[in-house]
Simulated scan of single mutants.
Amino acid sequence: MTNSTRDSLIKRPFMDKKHYPYGFARSGDFSIKEAKILAENGSVIAALVDGKLTPETDQDMRFIAVAHGETEPASPEEKVWLKYQKRINRPKAASIYGSKKVALTESDDDGDTADDTDIVLDDD
């Protein structure tokens, strides 16, 4: 891509309204320093990782390698980017109340005789 695209990405703060609607600093997931690093560098890193921006420097190549898990993160920017990726890609928490669907098993469907899985209590 062109330098004007890179320059515009550098000037634009990185925001993720879907996962962090109130900003990174107010989320509780990131420290103030981490939120600042992510806001300043996230647009360029995201464009590099998504392939929307061609890597021009060794640092750009390193960002891509770290994002793909080929290299361990060393700089604060790399560490914060991986932390951000782990946060947005974590599994969703299940409800403590269970699901709204009631699962029927085969023993619930036939409804006639007791089989080996039914519990029978004798009153003696």
Results as ranks from 00 to 15, higher is better:
Asn3Arg: 02
Asn3Gln: 00
Ser4Tyr: 15
Thr5Glu: 12
Asp7Gly: 01
Leu9Gly: 02
Arg12Glu: 14
Phe14Cys: 00
Met15Val: 13
Met15Trp: 11
Met15Asn: 07
Asp16Met: 09
Lys18Arg: 03
Tyr20Ala: 09
Pro21Arg: 11
Tyr22Gly: 08
Gly23Phe: 05
Arg26Val: 13
Gly28Ile: 04
Asp29Pro: 06
Phe30Ser: 02
Ser31Val: 14
Lys33Asn: 02
Lys33Cys: 02
Glu34Ala: 10
Glu34Val: 01
Leu38Trp: 10
Leu38Gln: 06
Glu40Ser: 10
Asn41Glu: 06
Asn41Ile: 03
Gly42Trp: 10
Gly42Cys: 15
Gly42Pro: 15
Ser43Met: 12
Val44Tyr: 13
Ala47Ile: 02
Gly51Cys: 05
Lys52Tyr: 07
Lys52Arg: 12
Leu53Asp: 13
Leu53Val: 01
Thr54Ser: 06
Thr54Phe: 07
Pro55Ala: 09
Pro55Cys: 15
Thr57Val: 14
Thr57Asn: 10
Met61Glu: 11
Ile64Glu: 00
Ala67Met: 02
His68Tyr: 12
His68Lys: 14
Ala74His: 08
Lys79Leu: 01
Val80Thr: 04
Leu82Phe: 11
Leu82His: 01
Tyr84Gln: 07
Gln85Pro: 15
Arg87Ile: 09
Asn89Ser: 06
Arg90Trp: 05
Lys92Thr: 14
Ser95Tyr: 00
Ile96Ala: 07
Ser99Trp: 00
Lys101Ala: 07
Val102Pro: 00
Ala103Ser: 04
Ala103Tyr: 00
Ala103Val: 01
Ser107Phe: 07
Gly111Met: 14
Gly111Glu: 04
Gly111Asp: 10
Thr113Val: 12
Thr113Asp: 08
Ala114Ser: 09
Ala114Glu: 11
Thr117Cys: 03
Thr117Gly: 01
Asp118Tyr: 08
Ile119Met: 09
Ile119Gln: 06
Ile119Thr: 11
Leu121Glu: 09
Asp123His: 09
Asp123Trp: 10
Asp123Arg: 02
Asp123Glu: 12
